[in-house]
Amino acid sequence: MPTSMETLLEVKNLKKHFPVSSSIPFKKSNQSVKAVDGVNFNVYSGETLGVVGESGCGKSTMARLINQLIKPTDGVVTFKNKNLVEMDAEMLRSTRKKIQMVFQDPYASLDPRLKVGQLIAEPLVIHKVETKESRRKRVEELLEIVGLNKRFADRYPHEFSGGQRQRINIARALALNPELIICDEPVSALDVSVQAQVINLLKQLQDQFQLTYIFISHDLNVVRYMCDRIAVMYLGKIVEIGTYEEIYSNPQHPYTKALFSAIPKKNPFEQKERIILKGTVPSPLNPPSGCHFHERCPVAMDICKAKAPKAITTENTHQASCHLVH
């Protein structure tokens, strides 16, 4: 839970348009994929912001834009009152110490040829923190923090299961004492029983080190358990944002309503009526006019085809972008 409402990260009008090469050789194409298309939100110190949405909606691109792994086309990312987009490389590198990432696939995100100790020490080496001897101590300490044996430092990643690898990833992300950790589907590749272990660990670390998380997931139950606030993304835009209670008890956007109707009940045999959407997510290369959701929307009106809805605040922190919301 956020202890204060101090803004740690502010994202304003963030855009990333990827140019698409033309199908005719040597001819310049003016088409682009609008992966993230004008996103605004704040992240407060100590909270967990969940980002949900279907594949291709721009969740992961947004994560990479925040810590400038890819440069945005437009927009501002302010971390502790400093704009990351306009920073020079050296300044950015030192600021980025405080923003770390945990990726989805624990098999692909650990270099198979480095020992676990080397993997975890790598951020320390890059940022020239501590001496060689004290680094080893720090690595052992980190392994114990994430619930692994400190002897594991001399082993290779292939010797570990998916859950253990994800713990190694988390240890690496913690090495530089970050303030913000962006978790990009950290548990999607894990089995249920192991998933719970990793989620418990993330929660416990948040309390222990006062971490702020941006938690990307498509599993709404995981998000509900982890997050204080949720942003729902659809085709490069945030269609609804608010605290979990606000969104869960009173979803405003028809897309959010459909998504949340699919959450399994406590007793699965009293399943409530599900809203089944038509079609699939349209191509971001050629998104529908007006509201991007209108082709799949069960309550679409004429205005939805013509005009993109603006974000409207309904309650304190609850915002939705739909023409039906007043």
Binding site: S161, Q164, I199, N200, N221
Partner: peptide, 24 residues
């Protein structure tokens, strides 16, 4: 039991730790 308990359902208290099956 472990499998059923590690499922996160809508009634899961978000302040209580999740159940999980230890080991592999």
């Amino acid at each position: 039991w472990g499998l059923l308990e590690s499922q996160i359902t809508e009634s899961q208290d978000s302040h209580a730790p999740l159940a999980s099956i230890p080991g592999s």
